[in-house]
């Protein structure tokens, strides 16, 4: 009932430990927890993924579903093809933490939704927005990104972005056939029809360029990645850097109001997050490759699935 309380002694233990480079769970400052990720777990969605960042079946657990819907062009919209084509909504489930009950999660929800929105809506996102346009100035696809935080153990931003990237990579847009008709007045009219065949659906163009984020948490005079809940409570300030696979920085956000960074520390922090991002990209890729292998094995096994009791916790979800 008091997950958000920390005694001064614990605070001191964590801060001094980070100063010495050994964290409460034995990790170094730039060590990540174990990452598990699975794609295509919601059949009704166009794309989905679930990720867990933590050890032995516990940790921050995020589920992202993506739904593509057709939006109508309204007069006065900007011509910028990338404006508001992705609608983000993040919700923290009260089952994740007692503090999220009632209206407790509102602030976190808003913060994460806006952050995701800023990261995805715009050319920095990497997705080819032209693909989302069906008929210019008439109809286009809107991607609804809905994330649910199922379990909370620190560092939600990076986990959220990894899950979103995996879900967008998994997304298939239904095929649309556009027909041009000339009506009796000689005006060219365009109509479209959505093809109902899932085989014809196409993946998003530019999905490989979607960035990931690396969030650095400042604790004492040092910064760490991937904090647990207790470490997060000791954090004075945090910096989220989004980096694309090419290693280019696509966005920076400083949050957590308690204090700021020394400007001189920033260049180094950016360099560190660039390096950590490449670590994350490899981790994510490996994990996705592993999970697709597992899926294939499941299919081979058919109905003869027997739970392995000795290592039930290894079954990720």
């Amino acid at each position: 009932m008091s997950t958000l309380l920390l005694s001064p002694v614990e605070r001191d233990y964590i801060t001094k430990g980070i100063e010495k480079g050994i964290r409460a769970d034995g990790r170094d400052r730039l060590d990540w927890r174990h990452l598990q990720i699975r794609q295509s777990i919601i059949s009704q969605a166009n794309g989905s993924a679930r990720c867990r960042l933590g050890n032995l079946g516990f940790g921050t657990d995020i589920l992202v579903g993506i739904k593509a819907e057709i939006g109508q062009y309204t007069q006065g919209d900007s011509n910028n093809p990338s404006s508001q084509k992705i609608v983000c909504n993040v919700e923290c489930s009260p089952s994740a933490m007692q503090e999220f009950e009632g209206r407790g999660a509102d602030e976190v929800n808003l913060e994460l939704s806006q952050l995701l929105d800023r990261l995805l809506n715009g050319p920095q996102c990497g997705i080819d927005f032209d693909q989302l346009c069906i008929i210019p100035k008439q109809a286009y696809w809107v991607l609804y990104v809905d994330a649910l935080v199922l379990d909370y153990d620190g560092n939600p931003i990076d986990a959220l972005m990894m899950t979103t990237r995996a879900a967008l990579a998994d997304t298939r847009l239904p095929k649309v056939v556009v027909e041009s008709i000339t009506d009796e007045n000689g005006v060219l009219q365009q109509e479209f029809e959505v093809v109902d065949d899932p085989q014809a659906a196409e993946p998003l163009k530019g999905r490989d360029n979607i960035p990931l984020t690396v969030t650095l948490y400042q604790i004492g005079g040092n910064y760490v990645v991937d904090t647990g809940l207790q470490e997060e409570l000791c954090t004075k300030a945090r910096l989220t850097v989004s980096v694309n696979p090419a290693g280019e920085i696509c966005g920076i956000q400083k949050s957590h109001t308690k204090s700021g960074f020394a400007p001189s520390a920033l260049p180094e922090m950016l360099k560190v997050s660039q390096k950590q991002a490449s670590v994350l990209f490899t981790k994510l890729e490996n994990e996705l490759a592993k999970s697709s292998n597992d899926n294939q094995m499941d299919v081979d096994d058919g109905d003869s699935f027997e739970p392995d009791t000795g290592s039930t916790f290894l079954v990720p979800f």
């Binding site: 001094k16 409460a24 769970d25 034995g26």
Partner: peptide, 22 residues
């Protein structure tokens, strides 16, 4: 409300015991 001095070695052992319990 003050901790005593805890060396790196001791921290490592504490972390190991914590992980063992987890």
């Amino acid at each position: 409300n003050k901790n005593e001095k805890i060396s790196t070695q001791e921290r490592e052992t504490i972390a190991r015991v914590c992980n063992c319990i987890t």
